[in-house]
Design a protein around this nucleic acid. Sequence first.
DNA 1: CATGAATGAGCTTTCATTCAT
DNA 2: CATGAATGAAAGCTCATTCAT
Lengths: 229, 229, 229, 229
Amino acid sequence: MATKPTSPRSATARLASAKRPGVREQAAQTTRDNILRAATKVFARYGYEGGSVEKISLSAKSFDRMIYYYFGSKEGLFIEVLEDMYRRMNDAELELDLDLEQPVESLKEVIRFVVTYYSKNPEFITLLNTENLHRGKHISKSMRAREYSSPAIAIIQKLLESGVKKKVFRADISARNVYLLIAATGYFYISNRHTLSAFLGEDLQTPEALADWQAFITSTVLRTVMLNP
Amino acid sequence: MATKPTSPRSATARLASAKRPGVREQAAQTTRDNILRAATKVFARYGYEGGSVEKISLSAKSFDRMIYYYFGSKEGLFIEVLEDMYRRMNDAELELDLDLEQPVESLKEVIRFVVTYYSKNPEFITLLNTENLHRGKHISKSMRAREYSSPAIAIIQKLLESGVKKKVFRADISARNVYLLIAATGYFYISNRHTLSAFLGEDLQTPEALADWQAFITSTVLRTVMLNP
Amino acid sequence: MATKPTSPRSATARLASAKRPGVREQAAQTTRDNILRAATKVFARYGYEGGSVEKISLSAKSFDRMIYYYFGSKEGLFIEVLEDMYRRMNDAELELDLDLEQPVESLKEVIRFVVTYYSKNPEFITLLNTENLHRGKHISKSMRAREYSSPAIAIIQKLLESGVKKKVFRADISARNVYLLIAATGYFYISNRHTLSAFLGEDLQTPEALADWQAFITSTVLRTVMLNP
Amino acid sequence: MATKPTSPRSATARLASAKRPGVREQAAQTTRDNILRAATKVFARYGYEGGSVEKISLSAKSFDRMIYYYFGSKEGLFIEVLEDMYRRMNDAELELDLDLEQPVESLKEVIRFVVTYYSKNPEFITLLNTENLHRGKHISKSMRAREYSSPAIAIIQKLLESGVKKKVFRADISARNVYLLIAATGYFYISNRHTLSAFLGEDLQTPEALADWQAFITSTVLRTVMLNP
DNA sequence: CATGAATGAGCTTTCATTCAT
DNA sequence: CATGAATGAAAGCTCATTCAT
């Protein structure tokens, strides 16, 4: 009770209420959303320790106090950032419209999607790295994290099965490994772009470089799963 | 700064110097090394911002002041940590004894080395992630970073050439891409082990899981480079 | 402030009012009383600074805002807590049914009452200590504080006079001093129970210890006032 | 190690070192002492919560940071304030030069000492009240607290024994209770002077009022312990 | 060569209170 | 009548760094 809105107020809970939101509630929603968006940017840019509460509240054009009002603590905010990040990735994956009858083309589409998503959402990657630096301790405190288990593996599983039936894919391939292969290659390329660039002496983020890399991993994945690549 | 002693001298350089160190110098050397080792652990564990000067000096059983004495600043210390980390990786790669006459076996050996090295030196990965979070700004200030450009690509290049000559490898494969493929798969698996474990609901660090993953990427790499895999 | 409702009306005053309260008013009354009760507990437990508005509103299962609605400010609430505390002490004293014809027994009864009241209402003591820490600045702002000047001294005065008339008490004894003597011994024992316990290495709050102390001060007071103790 | 001087540096430890203190060390000692003195005043005046770190460091003409440097935390500082307060009380008690052959006069002297000490050191009282508000939780964390168990009870015990032998004191009197009686009356009078003044409508701190009170409790104590008062 | 002392900016968080329905 | 949202000051504490031997 008291000042705090039953601690971290869940967006879901509020949406569930039938009552049409008034001006005040909508303004509050905006404040909350602004903070969440700002926090995503700031944490992605500076990490957890480097992402100060002040940086976030300033960027959200709000006040430090509001972060505690809506999210309870810096950690609570970070957890919601992670949840939101997972949820957006999930939503994007669900929008993939794949034709099971065309497993090869669909697999290529998945690869294209992953490479594009990582390249356009590098904050996804830095947030994940930050969370891994903290040994997953924040996400393990999240109750919603499980809900957002990626549908990607299931999708790939279906594609593989379809390909096997059509005698274009090999039968003994693990969908999880194919998923990890695609994720790893897409992830690493973006995650380490700064040290790799210094290291290789070339810019990895030009459209050509990206296209080249995507082509390479497409060929690699296909050679791994196809009977006659 | 003015009176900095052995400041810009790497451990290698120092060992190479013919002059036998006196007791005084050795004690100083020990303090310096202790700090460097402690800093590596602390930065790897907590990141750059999270790795406070006090945590480091405590872990090194020394004093804050000594860090400034030997490394000038926290940033200077972090740069030396990165350099040291690259140097150690380099040294390890140089110890790989590969038979160019056996390109397939040698390539497997390279994969085995990478997976093992990452798995046994996860601090290598968190330090690199930290540096990438900072967009490579520290390593770009290092003068020695270039010296330690990994010999891995050159090695793979030779293996690929040998394999092509022996008609076991395809001709149009980029050594850089093969290197990135190996690095990416090895790196991602370790780097994201905490979020992946939460995500997949399984422990990725058991010997069996690691062996399985190594087998998978070995097969993937070989299918990518071999003529008749 | 402007719209403050039942603001400066004590519980007693309200109960005395003939008009039956409606449901609305009763609900409001409940909220107000809940806050007052919660505030008494919280201020007694944590002091004035330590007793935050949030702690109180949470404990009252109400909202911060309600404290300002009913009491104007934290200080206003604290003043009402003090007034309420004095009033309750007064009410309890007035319930003492003493026989002036039996001055010795009655004096013993007064002592018993004081020791029991302090021991059962330690919050009375911590609130008084808190107010004394603030040099009485809150109670001096209260308009009702004077109304509640303890009847105890007057009672003791009557007992002493009766005892003198009956030739059992000495004639030159100050009722004020006897009151202070009783209050001091009862108060100190409870007020300092934590530091005394640490100090003396024994629990002062066991029934035996309390009874022993009460016996001692009874004997002390009687020896002070009686002609032939 | 690191910056902190092996956490809260004990004054004793430093004094134990044979080495004559240099200018630096002496300056440090001064800083530490200034903080301790300032903290005693501030905590006594504003309580624990009300006594902010900034108030203390300002009053000590030092910096917030120094409090953490020397005392580890606000709580650590408060504990040392309590210890110091007990120690000073102890030292003062030890300076009492009592003649066991004159038990009545000596007991009067003890009462005079207590009343005077409390009246001249009201901070002793507010600090104790503050600590009792916190249920003795700080003093129970102190390792030195036990060392300072007041010699007062032992002194009174000896006086009582001497008086019994000389047939002026009653035999069945508990030294502890006499001590508590003297402490309670002296303490209460000072501790509650603000609320009592408002209550009784007179100033309790005039020399006359104090002398009157001291005379009263002297008579009370003597009537309690003497055979023929 | 080493190190205790000092420094001020910055950190996350809590405070009492007011705004706007 | 009631309350969620907003506010800025201040709290305790940690930060990287410099001073002064």
